[in-house]
């Protein structure tokens, strides 16, 4: 049954910061399971705002309103407990932010600690190994698991943050410009990693970098001034954009 329903569906989703200004306007879209979907658009177009709505980050700020529906496996998350949603929807931020007071292994398990779940020792070790392997970090850090995560390089830190999100076995992984603070080589590693990861998780990635969207995503959204202007196959959108605004953006005449 479940597999018939789309993993994630936006239905007239709106986000407003004040009564007058709407940052995301009536976005409707369906995201396919085990794909990478890129969200593009010029600065201030609402792409990060839309992404953050999916794991109810906006609930932290009392003056932000989210309207419409966001369905996760057919269930509207806006009426769910934020904590339940966030366990099922992981998030990776722009700047790598491993918790500075925790060791590498504690960082991987942070999701469990923060949810008050105590895993048995063997399960803990297995989770650490599985997650660090799936972000290709295991070989580099397996001897320093008890050291603080802040000693790692930027790219390694970001992979640690992805591992941390994966440890909770989320259905969806949200990524907010995860490579914008990284050098080209680290970026390449992360991109290859995401290709692998889409086998187990559905990824929604906000990116400024059109090349990155083209390289990794199967579908793309283009947002402008809070509206979802165009949504479709990435290859199609890049070769033959349907909307003038998309075309202007992709050809560098905007943003």
């Amino acid at each position: 049954m479940e597999s018939i329903k789309p993993i994630l569906e936006f239905n007239k989703t709106c986000v407003s910061y004040t009564k007058q200004t709407m940052a995301v306007k009536y976005v409707s879209a369906t995201i396919d399971r085990n794909t990478i979907t890129a969200i593009m658009g010029p600065s201030g177009c609402g792409k990060s705002t839309l992404l953050r709505a999916v794991n109810l980050m906006h609930n932290l700020y009392p003056n932000i309103r989210v309207d419409g529906e966001i369905l996760l496996n057919g269930e509207n998350i806006l009426s769910m407990e934020p904590i339940d949603v966030r366990r099922r929807v992981g998030m990776v931020f722009q700047r790598p932010a491993p918790f500075p007071t925790m060791s590498i292994s504690e960082n991987v398990l942070a999701g469990y600690t923060l949810n008050g779940i105590n895993l048995p020792k063997n399960e803990r070790d297995a989770t650490i190994e599985r997650c660090l392997k799936s972000v290709a970090l295991w070989d580099e850090v397996k001897d320093v698991l008890n050291k603080k995560g802040t000693f790692l390089s930027g790219g390694q830190q970001q992979r640690l943050c992805i591992a941390r999100a994966l440890a909770m076995k989320p259905d969806v992984l949200l990524m907010d410009e995860p490579t914008s603070a990284l050098d080209p080589i680290a970026t390449k590693h992360i991109e290859e990693l995401l290709q692998e990861l889409q086998k187990e998780v559905t990824i929604l990635i906000v990116t400024h970098n059109m090349g990155q969207a083209m390289r990794i995503s199967s579908k793309s959204m283009f947002m402008y001034l809070g509206e979802l202007v165009e949504y479709g196959d990435t290859a199609m959108m890049f070769s033959n954009p349907a909307d003038e605004r998309t075309k202007a953006y992709l050809t560098g005449k905007m943003g």
Partner: peptide
């Protein structure tokens, strides 16, 4: 980002405050 990352992992405010 520290607080947000903690909350994004599903931690409640008390645990994020206490642990992060």
């Amino acid at each position: 980002s520290l607080k947000e990352a903690g909350l994004a992992l599903g931690g409640n405010r008390a645990r994020v405050m206490l642990r992060v």
